[in-house]
Design a protein around this nucleic acid. Structure first.
Lengths: 337, 337
DNA sequence: ATCTAGCACTTGGCCAGAGAGAGTGCTAAG
DNA sequence: CTTAGCACTCTCTCTGGCCAAGTGCTAGAT
């Protein structure tokens, strides 16, 4: 058996199936690809591929369809990721220029990626892990209500309203804020909690109770930052792939809204040598996503993830190229600002 | 012709069509409802209803289906909105308790409404129109980059990064901030721009250029606040109504993501005597939503909108009840905080 | 005037059967 | 190892016939 040709056949099957959206048979294969052998030979190869579980026939006399495993081999076999076309590069440039704050950059980026791939795009908020405290603000909204704002040098701003047990006038709050700021400014957000705890001693005894309440709020702010949130775009594309896939889009929409499952998945995906990570069908280990594939990669300093979610029958090479290219531009923009 | 009975027939047709999801005929109607007359009489009524354009027959010998106009008459005919069941009230209570900041409240609310109605729910951010400036913060991120934060007494926090034309050290920025705050604090957000402009005279001449840049940023912040944003939940329900409606969910998803069309629509909808507004099918005046209905109502002081989006074939009475009930709870919670 | 009963008529949905087309696996030969 | 040929298996599509649902109309009952 000719091993290289067998892989070539698998490649052809995947490409044709993605393109024509229907099972592909041996005859169509030799017509559409210059394989240099007859359909009978292809049939032998296909039988072997089926034995290995890379393709299946929906029924006796239909063509073959790649399995998750088949897509996996296909993807692994891809050596170089195709660079983007000039038109695509131009689109990236013009769409991402002119963005101002972080929210805006992420918003534009995810829309861009979605348009480029005709797929749902997701982007995780940059993690605050290595970010440092730039500023802390505390504003009295009511005698016992305080709005806490935490600003990190990564450009993220987190806010929360905290209710405390005793009244706080403006001056007292300003003093506490000053103390908090002194204890944490310029230091990593991740250590905010411990830094605040250590600064408690320097406070007046009568302030410590309320200070602890505020500190808890700030710590919670630092912990539950947006690193566990993501932005989504292009959900409409899910409904476009008019096929049997339509049945399974409801769970996918749920997963996109829930975010939890997807975020865990994204953080577990490790990019390979080509700079992108791919999870195919059941590899996602989530029932709701068993008919979808995810292509993702990290961006920025702290390796937050950006990627796309789509049906397993997708154009992997093009999507991988788009994800990687957009991630690079995004990293560049974030580093520059 | 018996007019009251004709309306009764329309009501029965709508209810049955919503329930059984298929065209309803005269015979089924007399079986399922105590109309007190024979199917032949119903047929006469139905013919009249069809002449008036309230129902149509998909083909010669199928039952009748309500038109948009039919739903409209049905909805207008509803006099009292059914109150929620105790179980639903309980669900509202337990889900909305324990929310802290505005984002969280809206997030929970929209999920709740979505679950109650099994429909897509949307909620518009409260408008800053009548809100007053509580606080302004300006943080130097880099010599020429400033993070502006605007906090309103409605609890909303807006932020934006502005790049200015000259270097700003910390002290100079603090002075400017102080001046801005003095000019605007406690005054309506809507007048922030003019208030800032008037305060320019009191600044040192060399500060005026950069101050103008910052003021422009703040004014933009006040103008483009979240009032033009909304939160969505339950998109997965769109794909659940497994029927011909599946075809049209892609445009709906787009509209939900685009937000612009929907926001305009929401703001144009005026609640009627029962406290809710309903736009049915083509009444939405948006092609992408021609097969969907929207039920919405205002909440809070500034009449921001909350509502649901679903197929025209929906349970209007139940949905109207849920929207109104949730809007009331939401108003109560926002007023209390 | 209004309602009802009956009836002829229309039509989509469903089923079975036939035929075509696509594709396979196998065998035997190059 | 490859190829040609062939029998076989399925699905898909089309057809015709039948049935059930539902209608509109007319004539009679109330």
């Amino acid at each position: 058996m000719n091993e290289p040709r067998k892989l070539e056949v698998l490649r052809a099957i995947v490409e044709d199936y993605v393109h024509y959206r229907e099972p592909v048979g041996s005859k169509a294969l030799v017509e559409r690809h210059r394989l240099g052998v007859s359909s009978a030979t292809i049939r032998n190869d296909m039988a072997a591929l089926e034995d290995e579980g890379l393709i299946v026939a929906p029924h006796t006399s239909a063509g073959r369809v790649p399995t998750d495993k088949g897509y996996r081999v296909f993807v692994d076999q891809l050596t170089n990721v195709r660079p983007l076309s000039p038109a695509e590069r131009h689109a990236i440039q013009s769409l991402l220029d002119g963005a101002d704050d972080l929210d805006d950059v992420l918003e534009r980026t995810v829309r861009l990626l979605s348009h480029l791939t005709n797929q749902v795009a997701v982007v995780q908020y940059p993690q605050l892990g290595r970010a440092r405290v730039r500023h802390i603000e505390a504003v009295a909204l009511a005698p016992r209500q305080v709005l806490l704002v935490l600003i990190a040098d990564s450009g993220t701003v987190e806010q929360r309203v905290v209710t405390v047990g005793e009244d706080l006038d403006h001056d007292r709050l300003a003093l506490l804020r000053q103390s908090f700021l002194a204890a944490t400014a310029g230091k990593p957000v991740s250590q905010l909690g411990t830094n605040l705890a250590m600064s408690m001693d320097s406070l007046l005894p009568e302030d410590r109770t309320v200070a602890a309440e505020l500190a808890a709020g700030l710590a919670a702010l630092a912990a539950s930052t947006r690193e566990d949130r993501m932005v989504t775009a292009g959900t409409a594309y899910l409904a476009r792939s008019n096929s049997d896939f339509l049945q399974s889009i409801s769970p996918v929409l749920e997963a996109l809204e829930e975010q939890v499952v997807l975020l865990r998945l994204l953080s577990e995906m490790a990019s390979d040598a080509r700079g992108v990570a791919v999870a195919i069908g059941h590899e996602t280990a989530a029932d709701s996503l068993s008919e979808t594939s995810i292509i993702a990669t990290g961006y920025g300093r702290d390796d937050a993830k950006i990627g796309i979610v789509g049906p397993t029958r997708m154009d992997y090479p093009a999507s991988m190229a788009a994800v990687r290219a957009v991630a690079r531009y995004l990293s560049k923009i974030l580093a520059g600002s």
